[in-house]
Protein backbone atom coordinates (compact mmCIF):
# COMPACT_ATOMS: atom_id res chain seq x y z
CA UNK A 1 0.00 0.00 0.00
CA UNK A 2 1.43 3.36 -1.07
CA UNK A 3 1.86 6.09 1.54
CA UNK A 4 -1.33 8.05 2.11
CA UNK A 5 -1.43 11.51 3.67
CA UNK A 6 -3.36 12.24 6.84
CA UNK A 7 -5.48 14.69 4.86
CA UNK A 8 -6.44 11.99 2.39
CA UNK A 9 -7.29 9.56 5.20
CA UNK A 10 -9.52 12.18 6.82
CA UNK A 11 -11.24 12.84 3.48
CA UNK A 12 -11.86 9.13 2.92
CA UNK A 13 -13.16 8.78 6.48
CA UNK A 14 -15.61 11.62 5.90
CA UNK A 15 -16.96 9.92 2.78
CA UNK A 16 -17.56 6.67 4.66
CA UNK A 17 -19.06 8.42 7.70
CA UNK A 18 -21.54 10.21 5.45
CA UNK A 19 -22.48 6.89 3.87
CA UNK A 20 -23.13 5.45 7.32
CA UNK A 21 -24.96 8.57 8.52
CA UNK A 22 -26.52 10.21 5.44
CA UNK A 23 -28.49 12.58 7.70
CA UNK A 24 -25.32 14.15 9.13
CA UNK A 25 -25.14 17.94 8.59
CA UNK A 26 -22.14 20.28 8.71
CA UNK A 27 -18.39 19.70 8.62
CA UNK A 28 -16.70 16.70 10.16
CA UNK A 29 -13.76 17.77 12.30
CA UNK A 30 -10.79 15.81 13.65
CA UNK A 31 -11.98 16.49 17.19
CA UNK A 32 -15.44 15.05 16.56
CA UNK A 33 -16.18 12.06 18.77
CA UNK A 34 -17.52 9.10 16.82
CA UNK A 35 -20.34 8.36 19.25
CA UNK A 36 -21.20 11.64 20.95
CA UNK A 37 -20.75 14.05 18.03
CA UNK A 38 -21.35 11.90 14.96
CA UNK A 39 -23.89 9.50 16.44
CA UNK A 40 -21.99 6.37 15.43
CA UNK A 41 -22.73 3.57 17.86
CA UNK A 42 -20.16 0.84 18.45
CA UNK A 43 -21.43 -1.25 15.52
CA UNK A 44 -21.27 1.74 13.17
CA UNK A 45 -17.76 2.55 14.41
CA UNK A 46 -16.64 -1.00 13.63
CA UNK A 47 -18.18 -0.72 10.16
CA UNK A 48 -16.32 2.54 9.62
CA UNK A 49 -12.99 1.04 10.64
CA UNK A 50 -13.71 -2.08 8.64
CA UNK A 51 -14.48 -0.06 5.52
CA UNK A 52 -11.43 2.11 5.79
CA UNK A 53 -9.04 -0.76 6.51
CA UNK A 54 -10.46 -2.59 3.48
CA UNK A 55 -9.96 0.49 1.34
CA UNK A 56 -6.29 0.70 2.35
CA UNK A 57 -5.86 -3.07 2.23
CA UNK A 58 -4.58 -3.32 5.77
CA UNK A 59 -5.42 -5.94 8.34
CA UNK A 60 -6.09 -4.91 11.92
CA UNK A 61 -7.22 -6.72 15.03
CA UNK A 62 -10.48 -5.53 16.54
CA UNK A 63 -8.64 -5.00 19.83
CA UNK A 64 -6.33 -2.46 18.18
CA UNK A 65 -9.13 -0.14 17.16
CA UNK A 66 -11.45 -0.38 20.12
CA UNK A 67 -9.92 2.56 21.96
CA UNK A 68 -10.23 5.12 19.19
CA UNK A 69 -12.82 7.72 20.09
CA UNK A 70 -12.43 10.63 17.65
CA UNK A 71 -11.98 11.11 13.92
CA UNK A 72 -8.47 12.43 14.61
CA UNK A 73 -7.57 9.29 16.56
CA UNK A 74 -8.74 7.10 13.67
CA UNK A 75 -6.58 9.14 11.27
CA UNK A 76 -3.56 8.89 13.59
CA UNK A 77 -4.04 5.15 14.01
CA UNK A 78 -4.36 4.52 10.28
CA UNK A 79 -1.47 6.84 9.39
CA UNK A 80 0.65 4.87 11.84
CA UNK A 81 -0.27 1.52 10.29
CA UNK A 82 0.00 2.65 6.66
CA UNK A 83 2.95 4.99 7.06
Amino acid sequence: MARVSAEQIQKDLETIIRRLRPDLKGDIKATDRLRDDLGLDSLHSMELLSEVTEKYEIDVDAEQVQDVRTVGEVVTFLAGVIG
Binding site: L43, E47, L49, E54, D59
Partner: peptide, 10 residues
Protein backbone atom coordinates in the same frame (compact mmCIF):
# COMPACT_ATOMS: atom_id res chain seq x y z
CA UNK B 1 -21.67 -3.69 0.67
CA UNK B 2 -21.11 -1.79 3.92
CA UNK B 3 -20.29 -4.16 6.73
CA UNK B 4 -17.91 -4.92 9.54
CA UNK B 5 -15.60 -7.55 8.08
CA UNK B 6 -12.71 -7.14 10.52
CA UNK B 7 -13.43 -10.55 12.05
CA UNK B 8 -14.65 -12.34 8.91
CA UNK B 9 -11.53 -11.42 6.93
CA UNK B 10 -9.45 -13.51 9.31
Amino acid sequence: PIANTIFARK
